[in-house]
Design a protein around this nucleic acid. Structure first.
Length: 898
RNA sequence: GGGCGGUUAGCUCAGUUGGUAGAGCGCCACGUUUACACCGUGGAUGUCGGGAGUUCGAGCCUCUCACCGCCCACCA
């Protein structure tokens, strides 16, 4: 006996356990040998992560694809794993150490710290895996990988060394995006532009040798003036022509800096003269390079001022202070404090022309959340431009396809303007760069220290002490290898041969640059084949304002709370139903509740089957059914199967969900099960048996169609409808038998019942009242149908008796079903005024429709240009409407007479 | 500054080859029917953001305007 209601919380863990025990998620489970493969690699969640709604959506869609393909008999691998998340993890562990008042990492040293991170991972990392299981995701957990595990680390080293040897990885000294909070370099994609209200300060710099002459420059970052080494003006700017080549004495500092002519200076902007700080601004860096200006770094790694005295500073010039005083005032100050003070000092000397309000984009570190600092350091770079070339071609030539396709434009835009990828990070947690330095800083990149030593020996002709590069690699460096490193590369494993390339990548568009593009680059270079055929980009789940959900904003919806309240199936179905190929999803608990109700509806349909003893009949084929009703639902089931299948294959998850929902609720429950009741409760043994078998067959089909969306409840019900092995490993339904005539007949019946119900309700006929029905003008077919479905029609439309007559009854309510007129003599119940109003309203509607069609049909252009079938359709519709109008006219006349 | 998306029923959103505007929730009325009140039956509600154009025909195509959002970008 099924419980009165479905208790997701009790069922879900049990079912998941059964799947795992049966090894249902193992690669190739349930597939015949040699079956076509289907592979998805999971976007690896951070080891520090906990499940948020984005994971829920992302993995629900993958699980739908995976379960669907597994049921189709393919050899499926859903490869799971986690990302070591360099910065995030290091931050978590450092925070924990601080809370426990333990000595910080610099005190205990690198080795001890890394050990601590590993033990943190063992204890509290990877909680997300269990959370993923709660949603029913069918990854092959036996193959779980971690970006820092031995195999993947080997892949990372091999990739680094090979790219280095090909010149595709190199070391360079240039400006990087520096995060002063985390004290590490970060890559371009980790920089977010944040609109910030600030000021534009206009400073006046004195010209050397021309007492009283000043040149105005503007800046949003006054403190950087301490590092100015030039002033640029446009070569065509008449105002400053005579100044080019002359010098400015930098206030506060006393540095002699050159005035250079450079196109970078825009005469239209500000004064047309611009200060140049090559060590702290990307543009200025370029200008400085062009004019060979010195690069003076005035900040330390925490972005505090470090000014060094220099014999070149000019002393005792107007507006200046002695450099020692400036150093005393500013050194050690945070950049923002220094900003204030520099302005104050310049104001004091009358060198501030004006201060304007100014809104501009300030680059911020994605992780650290503070303004990044362009900072002059030596870092490792990947030549992304070279690697991008084949990755662009793959998409251009359709070997990898983005869904929706519009994302290709974004991909191309970025890939074609790609910059060198800074991959070194000044952290301890991550893959340490396999580079060793000799006494003269000569670098040896090798797979191991031994190898590096051997190379050094060859180079120096003797053994020397080597020191290893302290830096680790960007986490995304190892993520970029994910589609092949997880399959065993660089070893030639059977899995690699079998499951690479993968079929689909399902991911949010927010990591298209971080991850998708880089996997394309690395996979093409090392595997020679695209890592995936389709890239499905789903929406981001946002809050009601369209903002990204984040902990700091406090606008997160916890998917696990929704699971607790409504069940995993309900949440999954909701996410699938909302996953239209758009850009964002705003999740509402109302929807989840609605789909929880859907699960309950399904449950109750199963209870219906149980109640009427509908058991699966071995080998039952609905094509052999003789009852029209059963032939009809089999037809509809075939159609629904086709719809759901095609929608999933086209990544139209919402359409697949909607088709399944409609079929289950609006066809099966609303009509089919209701229509079977008289049969199931009746005396006709043969019809009853066939219908029972059909109900059971239908429920089996429904449960199978819903399984990718709602795996738990469907697996729970499956054994009741003939499933012997787990539903997760059973066959996906095929569309098949369809009977148009049966479909037409039942659709007519459904229409007739609906019409009668509608009129009854509008005429305020009490539901309890049984009413006689008289039918006139019925064709042979209609008469036959009336006879066949007599019992059902009377039951569902609350009809006492059905009479067939030549004429419609007087003083009765008229309605029109096809060619026939149905009369309901409502006698005293009927309100003549109400009936007249009803008919008039209907008539009005019909008249309008006729007018609309006539407008088309009298239009010569329409007749000439519209396709014949459209014209025919309009003519048919008009004929029907006109017939209806005549009948209604007659009805109204009769009403007036009575 | 460039690019992309959105604007459809009170709310949240569907609507792919241009051919009678849909769903869920909410709302109103009524509940005969032992699968289901997490339900059933019926009902109301839309100048499909504004304007122009293409077309026999536009929610859908083109242009334009308005507002909202996102991404990218070196303007001091």
């Amino acid at each position: 006996m099924l419980d009165k209601s479905y208790e997701a919380a009790a069922v879900e863990p049990r079912i998941y356990d059964a799947w795992e025990k049966a090894g249902a998620f193992k690669a190739g489970a349930g597939a015949k040998t040699g079956a076509e493969t289907y592979t998805i690699v999971i976007p690896p969640p951070n080891v520090t992560g906990s499940l948020h709604i984005g994971h829920a959506l992302n993995n629900t869609l993958q699980d739908i694809l995976v379960r669907f393909n597994r049921m189709k008999g393919k050899d499926v691998l859903w490869q799971p794993g986690m990302d070591h998340a360099g910065i995030a993890t290091q931050m978590v562990v450092e925070r924990q150490m601080m809370e426990r008042q333990e000595p910080d990492r610099h005190v205990i040293g690198r080795e001890k710290f890394v050990e601590k991170v590993w033990s943190w991972k063992a204890e509290s990392g990877g909680l997300i895996i269990n959370q993923l299981k709660r949603l029913g995701f069918s990854c092959d957990w036996s193959r779980e990988r971690f970006t820092m595990d031995e195999g993947l680390s080997r892949a990372v080293v091999k990739v680094f060394v090979e790219l280095y040897r090909k010149g595709l990885i190199y070391k360079d000294k240039r400006l990087v995006n520096w995060d002063p909070k985390l004290r590490t370099a970060i890559s371009d994609v980790e920089v977010l532009q944040v609109e910030t209200k600030g000021h534009l300060w206009h400073f006046k710099y004195p010209i050397e040798g021309e007492p009283g002459r000043l040149i105005t420059v503007a800046t949003t970052r006054p403190e950087t003036m301490l590092g100015d080494t030039g002033v640029a003006v446009n070569p065509n700017d008449e105002r400053y022509k005579d100044l080019v080549g002359k010098h400015v004495i930098l206030p506060l500092v006393g540095r002699r800096i050159r005035i250079v002519a450079d196109d970078y200076a825009d005469p239209e902007t500000g004064s047309g003269a611009v200060k140049i700080t090559p060590a702290h601004d990307f543009n200025d860096f370029e200008v400085g390079r062009r004019h060979d200006l010195p690069m003076i770094n005035i900040l330390d790694t925490e972005a505090k001022i470090v000014l060094r005295p220099n014999p070149d500073f000019v002393k005792g010039v107007p507006y200046s202070v002695e450099i020692e005083d400036t150093i005393n005032a500013l050194n050690g100050l945070d950049r923002f404090a220094a900003r204030k003070l520099v302005v104050d000092m310049l104001v004091e000397r009358g060198l501030v022309e004006k201060i304007e309000e100014h809104v501009h984009a300030v680059p911020h570190g994605d992780r650290g959340g503070v303004a990044i600092e362009p900072f002059l350091t030596e870092q490792w770079y990947v030549d992304a431009k070279t690697l991008a070339r084949p990755a662009i071609a793959s998409v251009r030539e359709g070997r990898t396809v983005f869904v929706p396709q519009s994302w290709e434009k974004t991909y191309f835009e970025w890939m074609e303007n790609i910059q060198p990828w800074c991959v070194s990070r000044q952290l301890w947690w991550g893959h340490q760069i396999p580079a060793w330095y000799g006494p003269d800083e000569k670098v040896f990149v090798a797979s191991s220290e031994e190898e590096a030593r051997a190379e050094a020996r060859t180079h120096y002709g003797r053994d020397v002490a080597l020191s290893r590069d302290e830096d680790v690699l960007d986490t995304w460096f190892s993520s970029a290898l994910w589609p092949f490193s997880t399959l065993g590369w660089p070893d030639k494993t059977p899995e690699l041969a079998l499951y690479y390339p993968t079929n689909a990548l399902v991911t949010g568009f927010d990591i298209i640059f971080y991850w998708v593009a880089r996997m394309m680059m690395m996979s093409l270079h090392f595997m020679g084949k695209e890592p995936f055929r389709d890239v499905y980009m789903h929406a981001l789940v946002r809050d009601e304002k369209g903002a990204k959900m984040s902990k700091s904003k406090g606008n997160v919806i916890d998917p696990l709370e929704l699971v607790d309240e409504y069940g995993a199936d309900a949440l999954r179905f909701t996410l699938a139903a909302m996953a239209a190929q758009g850009r964002d999803i705003k999740l509402s608990t109302n929807r989840v509740e609605g789909y929880r109700n859907f699960a309950t509806k399904l449950w109750n349909a199963a209870r219906f089957a149980e109640h009427y003893e509908c058991q699966a009949v071995e080998g039952f084929d609905p094509a052999t059914a003789t009852e029209t009703l059963n032939r009809w639902i089999a037809t509809e089931a075939s159609r629904a199967t086709r719809e759901v299948t095609e929608a999933i294959e086209a990544y139209r998850f919402n359409e697949a969900a909607a088709a399944a929902y409609r079929f289950v609720w609006n066809l099966t429950c609303d009509w089919y099960l209701e229509l079977t009741k008289p049969v199931l409760a009746g005396e006709d043994g043969a019809a009853k048996d066939e219908t029972r078998a059909t109900v059971a067959w239908l429920m089996g089909r429904i449960v199978a169609l819903l399984h990718p969306f709602m795996p738990f409840i469907t697996e729970e019900l499956w054994p009741r409808f003939g499933g012997r092995k787990l539903l997760a490993l059973s066959a996906w339904p095929q569309p098949g038998f369809e009977d148009e005539a049966a479909a037409a007949e039942i659709n007519w019946l459904v229409g007739a019942i609906s019409e009668i119900r509608s009129v009854r309700s509008e005429m305020n006929v009490p539901a309890s009242a049984m009413v006689p029905l008289s039918v006139s003008g019925a064709s042979e077919l209609t008469r036959a149908r009336l006879a066949t479905h007599d019992v059902v029609l009377r039951r569902l439309a609350r009809i006492e008796s059905v009479g067939i007559g030549a004429e419609s009854l007087k003083g009765a309510v008229q309605l029109h079903v096809g060619e026939a007129t149905f009369s309901l003599p409502l006698g005293s119940v009927i309100d003549l005024t109400a009936e007249r109003a009803r008919l008039t309203k209907e008539l009005d509607r019909v008249a309008k429709e006729i007018a609309k069609i006539d407008a088309k049909l009298t239009n010569a252009q329409f007749l000439a240009k519209a396709p014949a079938e459209v014209v025919d359709e309009q003519m048919e519709r008009r004929a029907e409407a006109v017939a209806l109008r005549e009948k209604m006219d007659a009805g109204l006349r009769r009403l007036a007479a009575s």
